[in-house]
Nucleic acid binder design. Structure first.
Lengths: 189, 189, 189, 189
DNA sequence: GATGAATGAGCGTTCATTCAT
DNA sequence: GATGAATGAACGCTCATTCAT
């Protein structure tokens, strides 16, 4: 078993529960069934663990959106898929959602250059999809896709999280449908 | 001079610069030109300062949206005004924007009940505006306004922050216009 | 009304409740219905208040024992009276008893020279009584009264406190009688 | 080398010198040749150290008196031995004596339940010895041993401390003899 | 004399990180 | 590689004392 991945996974649990600053390296280690010192064989610092969590999650999104782009997926399917992707991620691993949503901003001031640049890839791929569709005449002319693409991506990810975090018993399909409609009507002709 | 307000203002500066957990009470006091102990004459703890910052800002938004509701403002003007309001707030006090955006989530897990309930008022007023306009036949039937109103409010606030934080030299009017269009097309007939 | 005495009396209450180090000057002042700063018009420091409390109480005991000495009171009556005196003091003002018993030792390391010297007077008077009675042939020859007089005085005072503190519903007369007997049989022929 | 015991021993020194509230954890650690943080690997708080000091000392006395009881030791030997035991303890470790005598009361208001219950054992064993001897007809009928046993135990311990603390150059054997005589004459037929 | 807001030294405790084993 | 005891810098908070009003 890969120990670095094990630490990442258990760190997500602890950080989701306590928040990054309250989370103790000792607790993460304990949760992972190793000694505190061992963590430092795989990560240079506590912050480094968080960076790595972001990196992996951003990479997953970058890969996902990039794959949609390569396959020439039409914009309505892209929006729908990305909503579904985030929903599924967050429902399957609620702790990861928590960490992504809560700590992302706090740490954006940190030095996680690598994680940042990967997030940039997500924006870029989504932008390319929008550009293609604008050329196809599907997107309204008065929408500046360069400016809006990161805002929309963030909106979709945050809303997915918000819905799952706020509403306990609700028709999720209904909400996903609403979210998709709002964005599609917002940008399409 | 109101010392509690002075502490709030200088705390915003320090917390914006360092983040809440890195910000030292001593630094906040120093920035405000008082002794560290004096802070505790006005706040019961460091966390209490943050709560108060949120409370004041949320109250401003609650008042703003509520006033629009009372005046029966049409939805397109509401969206436009709220975008402008956030823009202006964030441009005038970028540090406040930083704190609101970065720390809001981190601390949402804390016990800031008062601040939370005030934020709830924002949602409620905005929901009432949307409800009115739906009855007026301006909102598309397939939009569930109960679900979407908090998502839209957050979208507008976060996007305002994102744009100001990301783009240094840009045509802000153009971006505000884009944001408004996306949301209006997204929800209106 | 004498403000210094008022502070002394209310300080006794607070110190009895919290212990000297936990007792706050502010609480003492509040209890006495004055401002914290006012305390420092009558006492030079928090410790100074405690010194004064001791001084007053020791003086009362010194006066009491000295009066017995002057009146040529026989030893059995002295013992009995001193037990009764302590009992009555402690029953009437249990807080004072608490402070005397608990803080006396802690602070014996402090610089309360005046209070100490007054306590010395108690020992001296009691010693003179014992000496008189030894010359009268009432005290056993093998008792070194110089050594034993302070021990006995402390024993009587501490035991009074202990009994009142430990036993809630008990025949106090029976216990006082026991205490008196033990000491009298211990020292008399 | 047992580090917990080392901390206990050095804490006794510092607390004896400064008093509990003046003693700094840092000083205790420094005295013990370790870092301040290390103290918290063995004790949960500063107060916890004091509790442990009491526990150990009370246990020693409890064991001592209990052993005398088991061996059916006659009362005069018990008194003599207990005086000697306290003398020796206090002469060998004057700091321990100081702490026991000075802080015992201050902290008796704290939550040191364990330490308290151990002290109760001392009273109980001594009471059983007295009861035995009363049945043997050695103790005067008019002495209520249930009431007097804790008072006597405290008297012996406190007096040992007082003598050692007050008198620098004195015939200690003479004083111990005096103390023993007083108590024995006080209670025996 | 009386106030009480302001001070700031001081301290208990935490916890990321190290390193000898 | 793995451990976990030890470290010690760091920080939130307290409260005796002062002093301008």
């Amino acid at each position: 078993m890969n120990k670095k991945e094990s630490i990442r996974n258990h760190a997500i649990k602890v950080i989701a529960r306590e928040g990054f600053y309250r989370a103790k390296v000792k607790d993460i280690a304990e949760e992972a069934g190793i000694a505190a010192g061992t963590v430092y064989l795989y990560f240079s610092s506590k912050e480094d663990i968080l960076d790595y969590i972001f990196l992996v999650e951003h990479q997953r999104r970058a890969d996902f959106v990039n794959r949609l782009y390569i396959k020439n997926t039409p914009i309505d399917i892209v929006i729908e898929s990305f909503i579904k992707f985030n929903y599924d991620c967050f429902r399957e691993e609620p702790e990861t959602a928590n960490v992504l949503y809560r700590e992302l901003i706090t740490v954006s001031s940190l030095k996680n250059q690598k994680s940042k640049s990967v997030m940039g890839e997500v924006y870029k791929s989504f932008y390319k999809i929008l550009k293609q569709e604008k050329e196809n005449g599907k997107i309204r002319e008065d929408i500046d896709i360069e400016v809006m693409s990161p805002l929309i991506i963030n909106f979709l990810r945050n809303s997915s999280y918000n819905i799952l975090a706020q509403y306990k018993s609700v028709d999720y399909e209904h909400m996903k449908e609403n979210l998709k409609r709002l964005v599609l009507h917002g940008i399409m002709k």
